[in-house]
Design a protein around this nucleic acid. Sequence first.
DNA 1: TTAACATTTGAACACTTGTTCATGTATTAA
DNA 2: TTAATACATGAACAAGTGTTCAAATGTTAA
Lengths: 87, 87
Amino acid sequence: MAQFFGVLGDANRWRILSALAVQDLRVSELADLVGMSDSAVSHQLRVLKGQHLVRYRREGRYRVYTLKDHHILTLYREVSEHLDEDL
Amino acid sequence: MAQFFGVLGDANRWRILSALAVQDLRVSELADLVGMSDSAVSHQLRVLKGQHLVRYRREGRYRVYTLKDHHILTLYREVSEHLDEDL
DNA sequence: TTAACATTTGAACACTTGTTCATGTATTAA
DNA sequence: TTAATACATGAACAAGTGTTCAAATGTTAA
């Protein structure tokens, strides 16, 4: 449980998830979008995969990553509301 | 957002929140319940307070901590379900 | 088959985080 | 007022985390 939340406790990982919420993407595309190196993105995708938050399919020589569980968006909205109360 | 999730990314903080979900507690009681030092609990309560997850009221020379936002329990349940899918 | 491309992997490093320990502050009982 | 209690705080340290860089792997185009 704590481990799962911990994975969501990083801004770059949220950037990756947000990008994937819009559309499936290759690693290099993700890297460009979120402004990280390919390698850093790859490392983080591994972490996200570890919590079954993303998965990939192979397309030619690319790996196209996709959001595995859209529940995460619900989670995002709920926490947003919680945080709005903090003003 | 990431910061909020990061705060939930620690097992000891969840232990504290879980204990407070049952009943309001003083720092020393919390420390006993979760098996941490008073000081460690105090440090973590500060972190939780920073995200408006707990608050306290003074009672005599004690501080009685209480869950400030029970939404957190909903969050817990939702993530539990997500994690159950990972089998 | 070979070269180029896309991504992963592992080691190294700086940075962050959580705990302990010693000390400080606030509150009440004596 | 003083001593004791309850808790907070800050510094210090170990352990954990995220990034970079170099090298390895897998895939396709030439």
